[in-house]
Design a protein around this nucleic acid. Structure first.
Lengths: 340, 340
DNA sequence: TTGAAAGCGTTACCAT
DNA sequence: ATGGTAACGCTTTCAA
């Protein structure tokens, strides 16, 4: 219990000099003690006095000053835009954060929605992060990478469906998802396969590669792919469902489980039978799918564990000249239920 | 186009001194030009030379150095733990970020999952933020508030269901949600009302106040409330559904739409009719509810627009001694469909 | 074992 | 109109 807790109001912020004064030692000694500097031996009583003084004043070191002096920070910057918000990605993010924190990095997310690629890169660079991990949903031009590197970032890493020239890449290859869904449908004997393309700029980053993967799989397996634009509302779904007979399709990969639910309901409402007239496959393998009737077939995605990636980031920070690496994080496999 | 773009590799980070040297002026002049300092008149040719030099070097100012010099940062820190991930909260967050950015703050999220209240506050304080906005899902003790204030934070603001002593509070009063649902059910003639309590630590922050609000509404309106623990899986839902007859309830507020879907499916699977035997109300008014059969009644939540809150934060930063304020952000209103 | 001092990048004050 | 200089808080080398 500090007796100073009654004056948490205005006042100068305590510095290491204040701690030194109170403990009756020099600032250097304070630094040695508080950082457990192994290269110097400080007597136990002194250490105690310093720690007590720091406690009493509520001293907290000033990260900016430390960074300035050290010439580099230990901040890992994670720009965020329209991140996927599913539990899979969320858990991955938390794991990555925890892993990096464990390696003594300060992980910080920077909301970059609405910033252009150049402004954003500049804003990130001002913070002089040791590393930047840029999700695919956030614009990043090669020029941005250059700005970051010139500002001292030891590693620039992209995280998303596609790599960006000049940066390391943690790849979540969404083509796998589309490919997986289509191969599954081909196996089930379907040939004329629709692929839902959400009419939503946030989903576009994922939708395009999923479609590409679907196309590739169809090419190999002898199917035909038709892209189907769909907004996330009942009206749009009803319109699409009404067109179903004339489309001449026998299956649809619905982008994800939520779009699948939307579309399946609309299909059923106009009398299209699932899966008899239309096999439906979603993606995410969410609880949702298990609760629908018929139960929704889906594509289950698995992300690599994040700890090795935290180690990877650390390695790249310590060896900044490592040539760009690619790491595949995403695995997809079909989960058949009743809708296909 | 800078011709230096071919060497984005290692090398010293350009400083304002480098810009000054290249432009043939002093560091002070560089600072004046780049910050558009109005208190000093610089000739147009000089300005151009400085800007060109900065461009050519890819100079980006060093936020830490600026902070150190200024004695305060313009960083707003937003610790994150288990935030709600719904579109409502997400949009609110993005709006708040954009609003603060517009006021020239640097908004940064700090993943604090797994940190204790004290460690977390300390970690935040090291960054010397101008303001900290702490969601209810992140632990914050009064002691943490003191640490932050002593480290120079001009404003400590909580954002969540309940206020914390000594901090400003942006309140999303979840009691309103439970109350709204129960009042709706009472109006529909139901009296014995179950309230789903998710068996999930992440949801606990919201579940408890929703239950409290439900209880209060029942007290006023002459109903009986029964808390029903439920895990987010089919087994748990089936167990609860099997017990339904013996519970003697005629309605249930299911915490949110996803739990409502889970429970409704389980009830229907054991032959409990919705809404005849059990009225069901969710919350969030998501697309989900419109797609279920019967269509799910829900509680629609509306959050205040974030721009005024950005202004509020700015005001608190500029007047740090303002006594703690409370602001209510959440409004709830029932959306009746077919399940109640 | 401890202290004095320099220097990180920036800006504001005071000269010129 | 522009330049020199000191200071912000911290760490580290060198000296005592």
């Amino acid at each position: 219990m500090s007796q100073l807790s009654e004056q948490p109001t205005e006042g100068p912020v305590p510095t290491s000099a204040d701690v030194a004064r109170l403990a009756g030692v020099s600032r250097a000694t304070v630094s040695y003690v508080l950082n457990n500097n192994a290269h110097v031996r400080i007597s136990e009583p002194t250490r105690r006095r310093v720690r007590e003084a720091a406690d009493e004043l509520g001293y907290v070191p000033h990260a900016a000053a430390r960074t300035l002096r050290a010439g580099h920070s230990r901040m890992v910057l994670l720009p965020t835009g329209n991140m996927p918000t599913g539990p899979l990605h969320l858990r991955f993010l938390h794991e990555l954060e925890a892993g990096l924190r464990h390696l003594d990095y300060t992980v910080v997310q920077y909301g970059s929605l609405g910033l252009g690629a150049d402004d954003a890169a500049r804003a990130w660079a001002e913070l002089r992060p040791a590393a930047v991990i840029v999700p695919g949903s956030v614009p990043l031009a090669p020029q941005g990478i250059a700005v970051l590197r010139r500002s001292g970032a030891k590693a620039v890493i992209t995280l998303g469906p596609q790599p960006v020239e000049g940066a390391h890449a943690l790849i979540m290859d969404q083509r796998e998802v589309g490919g997986c869904a289509v191969r599954h449908l081909l196996e089930r004997g379907r040939r004329r396969i629709g692929v839902v393309m959400p009419d939503d700029p946030g989903a576009a980053v994922f939708a395009a590669p999923r479609l590409a993967g679907a196309r590739a799989a169809a090419m190999t397996g002898g199917g035909r792919i038709e892209a189907l634009s769909l907004r996330y509302d009942e009206e749009s779904a009803a319109t699409l469902a009404a067109r179903w007979p004339e489309l001449g399709l026998d299956a649809v990969f619905a982008y994800d489980d939520t779009y699948a639910m939307l579309l399946m309901r609309a299909l059923q409402d106009v009398g299209v039978r699932v899966p008899a007239d239309a096999a439906v496959v979603g993606a995410d393998d969410s609880m949702l799918g298990r609760l629908l009737r018929p139960r929704l077939s889906s594509v289950r995605m698995e992300l690599a564990t994040a700890q090795p990636l935290a180690d990877l980031v650390d390695r790249l920070v310590r060896h900044p000249r490592t040539p760009p690496e690619r790491h595949d994080l995403l695995r997809a496999r079909p989960v058949r239920r009743e809708s296909s």
